[in-house]
Amino acid sequence: MISCTEFIMAYSELFAFIEERHGRAELDRFWEELADEFLQNLRDLVAAKGLEGMHEYWTHTLTEEGADQTMTLTDGEFRLEMHHCPSTAILRRNKHIKPYKDYCDHCKVLYRRIIDPFGFKCEVTVHDAEHGRCTLRVVPCPANLEEK
């Protein structure tokens, strides 16, 4: 069994493996399928509670992961400021691993794909990939709303 404490390294290896052997388009397809089929808990929370559901989802996952972050929630915005991403910290700390070069890209693909169709605009801005600093910002955007 690969432990969940070793998963991030295996995940980075998976991204590198798919891109090297099957191309970047296939890696994007993997992330899209992961968003569509795996992250149902985030989708359910966004559908039921909107911005508040996002706050609830990341409060749970980032507490378990031990992230150094700040979340703010208002009527018109959910903002997650990641000061030190726990995943990139694992990749940086384990120097025997060569991290997948675009590791942070998966967050951009996954979360936009889940959140935007509920009538929001999700932006992920990576400030420093090596040190795991980024901002995830979500605001209402009725034009993105898709029929369910």
């Binding site: 969940c4 404490t5 998963f7 998976l14 993997f30 089929e37 996952t61």
Partner: peptide, 19 residues
Amino acid sequence: MANVHKDFHGCFSFGLRFL
């Protein structure tokens, strides 16, 4: 004490299934 986020097992399983 390491942080333990067990949903990662599900994500790993999804990756194997995709491959």
